[in-house]
């Protein structure tokens, strides 16, 4: 069981309190009505799923209930950092892809 740092609670909490919520930094376009089929496909269906560092959303659903973002390495299963929803992708230095 992982420990996940909730940026709203300010501490590491057991994974059981969290729920994964898909890839992060995919903003819902404001002009939904005008999107081409291709753009909608990219927005809704296509995910990067890389080996290595992923930016993903989590929800502290059984805690403070906030959605937040995390950078996690899918190889080591380590969280590099977590940050509040709406904050920009963090600079991970050499580690970030």
């Amino acid at each position: 069981m992982l420990l996940i740092h909730c940026p709203y609670c300010g501490e590491d909490r057991p994974e059981l309190e969290f729920r994964h919520a898909g890839e992060a930094h995919i903003a819902r376009p404001e002009n939904m009505a005008d999107m081409s089929d291709e753009d909608f496909e990219r927005f809704f269906f296509i995910r990067s799923n890389p080996k290595g560092i992923v930016y993903e959303r989590w929800r502290h659903i059984h805690g403070c209930a906030r959605f937040f973002n995390a950078a996690r390495d899918t190889v080591s299963d380590r969280f590099l950092t977590t940050y509040k929803a709406g904050e920009p992708k963090p600079d991970l230095g050499g580690e970030g892809a």
Binding site: A21, A27, R28, R59, F67, A85
Partner: peptide, 10 residues
Amino acid sequence: NHMEDYLQTE
């Protein structure tokens, strides 16, 4: 959860 997701993040 679906509603909270949109409310909090979109």
